[in-house]
Amino acid sequence: MNTTSTPVRSNQAQEGTRKEIATFGAVHLDVTNLDRSVEFWQAYIGLQVRSATTTSAELGTESNTLVVLNATAKTPFKNGYSGIYHLAIHPANEEEFARVLARLISKQYPIAPTDHTMSKALYMEDPDGITVEITLETPERLARLEFGPRGPVAIDTDGTVRAASAALDVAAVLKALPGHDLTRPLADDTKVGHVHLYVSDVEAAHRFYKGLGFLDNMYLPQYGMADLGAGGAFGHRIAVNAGHTRGRPQAPEGTAGLRYYTIRFDTPERLNTALQSVSSAQERADGFLVTDPAGNKVLLTASWEERPESTLTPPRRT
C-alpha cells in the first residue's frame, strides 16, 4: 500500500491526562417546528427538557444544557452553504453509547453507524435535516492516519488497517448494554464533544481557531479540511471543511441551522487571550459573541461563577 503519513497527534496516553484548554457549552439551533425537534432530542437522543416556552426549549442532562432550540426558522436546513456540518453529543462510556444506539434501532430511526477508530459514531439527521452525531471517544485505539490513492486509512494500535470511516460493529457495541432499559435519559456526564463546520475558506478558518488557542490535529488545506483539538488525547474538537462550500456564504436568513455555539475556556486568562485574536466581539451578560471568517457565530466564555469585568481587555466591541 502506497501511503503517506499525515500529521496526527502522538503520545496520546500522556495527552489524555492533560486538562483541555476549553470545553463546549450549549449549541443553539434554529428549527422550523419546536415540538417535533424536542421530540427528536428527547425521545430519540435521550436528552431531558430543562426548560421550555412556546418558542424555545433547553435540553440536556439533569445538570447541564447541551442544546437550545429556537423556533425561528422558516425553511429546513440547506446544503451547500457555510454553517453547521454536524454537532456531536459525546456519552461518557460504552454503555451510554450503546443505549442510544439500541434506542435508535428500536425506533427504526435512520442512522449511519461508523467506526473512525479514534471514535465510534452514529450519524443521523434531525427533523430539519441538520446532521447530529453521537460519539464515543476511543483515541487509545488510533496509532496513526495515512493517506493513500483511495483516501485516508486508520491504523489501529493492534495493527488493524481500516478505512477512516468504516462500518461500525453494531453487535459488538450492543453487548455493552446491560438489560434493555432504553428509556433512561443520557447521564449527567454527557457533553457536547465536538463541532464540525462548513466554511468558505479553510485557511482563514484555521487561523481563526488557532488564534483562539486550539491546536492542530490535522491541517490539510489541499483536501479542504482542518481539524483542531484542545490539548487532550482526542484531537477532534473543532473541525472545518470547505469541500462543497468554498467561497459560499451562510444560508439565507430563516433557514434551519446553527445560531451559535459556545466555547468555555478553562480560565478567564485563556478567554482574555482568545479575545485579543479577534477583530471585534459583542459583549453580553453570558460572554462575548464573535464570528468566524465563514460567518459562524461563537459565544466565548470561561469557567467561572461570576465574570470579573476588570480582568478582561476585549477587542473593539459591537
Rank of each mutant, 00 (worst) to 15 (best):
N2W: 12
N2G: 07
V8N: 12
V8F: 11
N11Y: 13
Q12E: 09
Q12F: 10
Q14H: 12
E15H: 13
E20S: 11
I21K: 02
G25H: 04
S37W: 07
V38N: 01
L47M: 10
R50K: 13
R50V: 09
R50E: 01
E58M: 06
L59R: 03
G60L: 09
V68R: 11
N70K: 12
A71T: 00
T72L: 12
A73G: 04
T75W: 00
F77K: 07
K78Y: 00
N79K: 14
L87M: 13
A92N: 09
N93K: 07
N93T: 05
A102Q: 09
I105G: 01
I105R: 12
I105E: 08
I105F: 00
I105Y: 01
S106G: 08
K107E: 05
K107M: 14
K107V: 04
H116A: 06
H116T: 05
T117L: 11
T117H: 02
T117N: 08
M118L: 15
L122F: 06
M124D: 00
M124V: 05
M124W: 00
E125N: 13
E125Y: 07
P127C: 06
G129L: 01
T131G: 02
I134D: 06
A143H: 13
A143I: 02
G148V: 02
P149G: 06
P149C: 01
P152L: 00
P152H: 03
A154F: 07
G159S: 03
V161P: 02
A163E: 10
A164K: 00
A164E: 11
A166Q: 08
L168Y: 01
V170C: 07
V170K: 06
A171H: 08
A172V: 00
L177Y: 05
P178D: 11
L182R: 06
R184N: 04
G193D: 03
L197Y: 07
Y198C: 01
D201N: 15
D201A: 00
V202R: 03
A204Q: 12
H206K: 04
H206T: 13
R207D: 15
F208V: 03
L215Y: 12
L220M: 15
Q222M: 09
G224N: 06
G224Y: 01
A226S: 15
A226R: 05
A230E: 03
G235L: 04
I238R: 03
I238F: 08
N241P: 14
A242D: 15
G243E: 10
T245M: 06
Q250S: 14
A251F: 07
P252T: 02
A256Y: 10
G257Q: 01
L258N: 08
Y261T: 01
Y261D: 04
T262V: 07
F265P: 10
E269L: 07
T273W: 05
L275V: 13
S280K: 14
Q282D: 11
E283R: 15
R284W: 08
V290K: 08
P293A: 00
K297M: 11
V298E: 05
L300S: 00
T301Y: 02
T301N: 07
S303F: 13
E306C: 03
R307I: 04
E309A: 15
S310D: 12
P314N: 06
P314G: 02
P315I: 02
